[in-house]
Nucleic acid binder design. Structure first.
Lengths: 125, 125
DNA sequence: AATAATAACAGGAATTATTACTATTATATT
DNA sequence: AATATAATAGTAATAATTCCTGTTATTATT
């Protein structure tokens, strides 16, 4: 059973209000502003716990391991390597890729990581 | 300029002949059978060098960082979250996703990261 | 409100994966 | 064969994460 703790609440708040995809250490430093003696272990433990209850997602694409986000809905993105903008890829384009892979492999799929990088139309000119 | 070394050759041979997606440490232990005093640093250095010349790929999706493969034909990966095995998903299943995304977004795509995670048929029982 | 049970904590040690350093060895070129 | 230096072995260092232990705080129960 989970008890409430101030530490957990502040960690989640920090994640919910940032638009970036911070590392555990960034979260630690941020939470420290409010709870100066928080332990890094507490941050890791809670990031894991919050993941397990679906409040937080760990990004696993594009070498961004160890980055977390509080907005846990699935999405695809494409990054321009020149100007850095990130665009969304319409779900329809990649419709049912999980289903296709599940049928081909026999796996029960629980997660996927789909991301692209390239040069955007504007930068191509 | 690259010189040839026995160490590099054996490391590449080991990777080319395995069907698994080994870690640097597994490669190290395997190469040790042939070159008992090889250094782990040598394995890491060569894995990196072999990557840079396209002989070896490092898997970068779904928390599989640090896994390598010598098989360079296009395919995707699926990882079992229970037993940890990594299997290949043939390109045909997700045929031309890069092209689809390119046409939908107008990007010139140069890189992608596509991987899946779930529970494998054996672990589902 | 006080008590008891234990989840969660802080702080530090331990672990793991990877990289950096340095003196020595091996390879390609002359 | 002599030379220059890429590559090596072995070790130390770094970074990210997890584990451990004694203490604190939260929740349920009285």
């Amino acid at each position: 059973m989970h008890r409430h703790s101030r530490q957990r609440k502040v960690i989640l708040d920090v994640l919910k209000r940032t638009k970036t995809h911070p590392s555990a250490d960034w979260v630690y430093r941020e939470v420290k502003k409010e709870i100066p003696n928080i332990s890094l272990g507490t941050v890791y433990r809670n990031l894991k716990l919050l993941q397990s209850i679906g409040e937080v997602t760990e990004i696993s694409c594009e070498g961004n391991e160890g980055r977390f986000e509080g907005n846990s809905h699935l999405h695809y993105h494409i990054t321009c390597q020149k100007c850095g903008q990130i665009k969304d890829v319409d779900d329809i384009i990649l419709h049912d890729i999980e289903g296709k892979v599940a049928r081909a492999t026999g796996f029960k799929i629980t997660n996927h990581c789909v991301g692209f990088a390239g040069i955007c139309p504007a930068c191509l000119e």
